[in-house]
Amino acid sequence: MAEVLVYVDHVDGAVRKPTLELLTLARRIGEPVAVALGNGAADTAATLAEHGAVKVLTHDASEYAEYLVVPKVDALQAAHEAVSPAAVLVPSSAEGKEIAARLALRIGSGIITDAVDLEAGDEGPVATQSVFAASFTTKSRVVKGTPVITVKPNSAAVEAAPAAGAVEALSVTFSDKATGTKVTARTPRESTGRPELTEAAIVVSGGRGVNGAENFAIIEALADQLGAAVGASRAAVDAGWYPHTNQVGQTGKSVSPQLYIANGISGAIQHRAGMQTSKTIVAVNKDAEAPIFELVDYGVVGDLFDVVPQLTEEIKTRKG
């Protein structure tokens, strides 16, 4: 059976959920061979094996942390040469897309980004994408070279599928371009203890209607009752009420949770671009004409300062 390379997104050996989803999709096309780079690379093997990786190619070098993107492209290219895979799958993070693009160019292949589904096809994998702020769905294929495809978080279920997961050292020679962009300092993001925005099953968001940084406590309280991540519209971010890392939309994160709750958000096209593929959408807005209500499964026309705390209380009561 053909092998499929899966680029592993991990933090010091802890594999992030989107990579496990990629393994589910990879198994539809062939046998997943994972590529894990950098500090803790070998520690990823057990988790990857549990989810279907037949092999885990690992390599650690200080270059991965000290220089931007290119060392990882060099390594993935080495893995591509070693394996001759039927496809290369990469998580659709900002960095993942850059790595995938440069790899595709080097190996003479096409690239598809932000797939939300992947199936095997007679002429190679077929990727589903959601475009123009999710108003259209397209099906595309790479028609030259090894398909390189980046896949968005929450595109497939994580499945247990035990496989060998044999660890093999990948041999990598860095190109002379690898050290072109130096990372001179790195400040890790502080953990909020809440789920990752793009990976969360539930997202509770606040917009301009929240009207102040201090009021985001109301949004957070609801999120915590639901075990949800907190999102924000650009208006809320630009006002300085919530960090940009939490922005949902075209220039923020694109989310596709089971449940999205928009509070005090009008539903501008750029916001919709980042949340319209959510399975169930709920909104609280005091303006009955707000465009967000065109998207909702359930909407409450009302003041969020009344509705949201009542909802939070009610959930608490029901949980007992």
Binding site: F136, T138, V143, I281, G299
Partner: peptide, 21 residues
């Protein structure tokens, strides 16, 4: 290097329930 094989307009979301608080 890539080919779009099919494009479908996303069906409009079925109208949800909207209540007034």
């Amino acid at each position: 290097f890539t080919k779009v094989e099919a494009v479908t307009e996303r069906p409009a979301r079925t109208a949800g329930t909207i209540v007034k608080d």
